[in-house]
Computed example of a mutant assay.
Amino acid sequence: MPSTTIFRAALLTSGFVAQMAHAYTQVNIASPFMYKNIDPIVFPGQYDKSHLHSFFGSDAVTINTKTSAELQKGCTNVENPNDLSVYWVPTLLYQKGDSREPVPVSRFSAYYSLGDNKAEVPIPQNLQMVAGSATATTADAMPAEAHSEWFCENGGGGEADKNGFPGSTCSTHLQQLLYFPNCVNTETLETAYKAGQPGNYKACPAGMKAMPQLRFSIRYDLRKVLPDGWSGTAPLQLACGNAFCSHGDFINGWTEDAAQNMVEATSSKNKFASVDGSLGKNGAKPTCKSADADPDHGTGDFEESVAAMGKRSVPAAGWTSRSRLARSPRA
């Protein structure tokens, strides 16, 4: 798999991105509601195994969360009251003195069904998904189906550095894209990707049906924390390692009526479709304040999370590769 910046350029040159302008819906989140070293999908019930993650969506998530019903009891910072899903990614960090701090998020967007045909079934209740791989240390090791990309929005960036990040200052935001499976067995909740690629997907595997495809789009604002920019190796790292370990996690918390309405968002091409539901309309600002549901356990500090995982030292920002902080290929 090519480096992420080159991969992005290849998509633009080939017209691949233009092909993806099919029907879709979108929900936006202004910022993470917490940073924490938990992962209820990969390390359920364990506080000392996961690297640091940035969490968006329902604040009912804890180390033991398994169901949509649990998430639907929480407060969501999604700008759609019907979406009580929880979304999380490894925290992106920059060097600040002797410590590493989270890079501010300008906006997290969850797109559904961008570049796909009409879904056959809604995203099932209780569905859990992971895209990408926390153990990847090179571009070739990244799962190709996730189409993970890092690039500069509105120019800048140049060629990718040895860690997979843009090799020079971004004009505005650093952006990441990540695609999730779009096929599901509604009985077992097993997921898979369709054959093909975004803009030219084929059929689902036998025994599965097409559901709306989730895509993460995350915009990071580096201008205040790195005002002098960079040239060469970006002074950045993910909590799991370099850019190639990029991954995302999702537990569905959409209300059942809104999830069903989402299917219609994929029924025609070249059109945005607002997904509303019994709790309100898409775009409505959160009316509650999200907070950590389990503040007495785990940590939101990067160095503390590394120490909890038994590491003796924290690597310098902008490093090539080393053993992953996580112990599972799906972390």
Rank of each mutant, 00 (worst) to 15 (best):
A119P: 02
D221V: 05
N252A: 11
A18E: 13
D296S: 13
T4A: 07
Q176A: 15
K311S: 11
T191V: 15
W150D: 01
S58E: 06
R312L: 12
S14D: 12
T5V: 15
I6L: 14
E187N: 11
E153V: 13
K269I: 06
C204H: 04
G74W: 02
L11F: 05
A307M: 11
K271G: 03
N282F: 01
E149I: 15
C245E: 02
G196F: 03
G157A: 01
A291T: 15
F151L: 08
I38V: 11
V130L: 09
L325T: 14
F165L: 09
D161R: 05
G167V: 10
G158W: 00
Q237V: 08
T320N: 15
A307K: 12
K118I: 09
L226C: 05
T76E: 07
C75W: 01
T172A: 13
Y179E: 00
K36D: 05
E264R: 09
E79P: 02
P40G: 00
I218P: 00
P124D: 08
P329K: 03
G115P: 01
A160L: 01
G298H: 03
G199E: 10
T67C: 13
K73M: 15
E70S: 08
T186S: 15
L222H: 03
K36S: 02
S328A: 11
F244V: 07
G310S: 04
H173M: 09
R223D: 12
A293V: 10
E187F: 09
D48F: 03
E120S: 07
G232C: 04
F7L: 12
R215Y: 01
G158T: 10
A308G: 06
N64W: 14
A265Q: 01
N82M: 06
W88F: 06
D161N: 08
D140S: 13
E79Y: 12
D140Y: 10
A23L: 02
L174M: 11
M262K: 04
G300A: 09
V314A: 11
W88H: 01
K311W: 11
M211A: 13
R215C: 01
S133M: 08
C170N: 07
T287D: 14
S321G: 03
F56V: 11
A160I: 00
V130T: 11
K289E: 15
A134M: 03
G74K: 04
P329G: 10
W88C: 09
S106F: 14
V17F: 12
V89A: 03
N252Y: 00
M142F: 07
T287E: 14
M34N: 02
M34R: 04
P329Y: 10
A60N: 07
T191W: 11
C152L: 07
F56N: 02
T169N: 13
C183L: 03
E120D: 13
Y201W: 15
Q26C: 04
